[in-house]
Nucleic acid binder design. Structure first.
Lengths: 160, 160
DNA sequence: CAGATCTCAGCTATACTGAAATGC
DNA sequence: CGCATTTCAGTATAGCTGAGATCT
């Protein structure tokens, strides 16, 4: 009866919400990265295509800020997307430091396919949860994320 | 009024629960690893100390299985713990392939200190959530984790 | 012989840092 | 000058793989 199956974790570890979070995230990441890989893409690809589609032609720096991607990774990812003709990289005449990134029709089509892939994957991920539970999970995670995005300042004005 | 602050993410990205999970986990991991580092430890150290304390003297393989650690990482981590005299590594006379890992008194004291550090860190992590919300978050994550730990088989007996 | 254990060497991918070149 | 943008090179870490030696 006692299920001491030689792989039950220490009670201390099971009690850590941080561990639940990171372990669930690892599996989630594997699932999502795998589904995107089957479609020939990565999270960076999808993020930048989405940003280019939603925020029109924009600089690499702006797209990177919006997606939370590092400048270095933006460069590499735009290289890959441009090589597949999913975005175009052209100099910005108004500010010659910048490249203007524009999504192409092929990029828009690819984005649509990836939208479908990701919608399926979210469903696969959240399969054991009811719609209400899915909403609650998203809400709780959003609270944590926004709380830890702003390091110190509480609500209201910063004391002078 | 419109907060188009140049870093609002694409709507598609904000809609992804997978993204919420992985981003929250990244920040969580940073927080936990940082607090453990201040105490001179890592997640692997804590995991193995906890397993050694809770499951008595045991082989490296068993401790690794219980903690979800790779055999390679167990070797390296036990090296580090043994160098600090937090565990002892001795040959198992009953099965000479194995090393028996035993926590030392110093290891038990270190584990106690790390317990306190991690309790504080969980509180820091979950600060914006009520006790009920903390429980609900842990429950929802557990459902997801156990669902995706078992790849295919549903509840009940596997069809013959 | 199959299979488990321990160890070492090395790999992949994510996320990040530093610095240079260019332009505002 | 300080600051922003793009680019390249390199770094750190987690998690994992392969192979060998030893033993059951």
């Amino acid at each position: 009866m006692t299920p001491v199956s030689d792989d039950t974790p220490p009670a201390r570890l099971q009690a850590l919400t941080s561990r639940l979070l990171t372990r669930t995230a690892t599996r989630t990441h594997r699932l999502v990265a795998g589904r995107l890989a089957e479609a020939g893409a990565t999270r960076y690809h999808y993020s930048l295509l989405a940003a280019a589609a939603e925020f029109g032609p924009a600089s690499q720096a702006e797209l990177g800020r919006r997606c939370g991607l590092d400048r270095s990774d933006v460069v590499a990812t735009v290289n890959e997307l441009a090589a597949q003709d999913l975005v175009r990289r052209s100099p910005d005449p108004a500010d010659r430091r910048r490249n203007t990134i524009t999504i192409t029709p092929a990029g828009t089509r690819a984005l649509g396919r990836l939208d479908a892939v990701l919608a399926d994957t979210q469903d696969e991920l959240l399969a054991p949860l009811s719609p209400e539970e899915r909403g609650e999970l998203a809400r709780l995670l959003t609270v944590l994320l926004t709380h830890h995005d702003r390091p110190d300042p509480g609500p209201g004005e910063p004391a002078p």
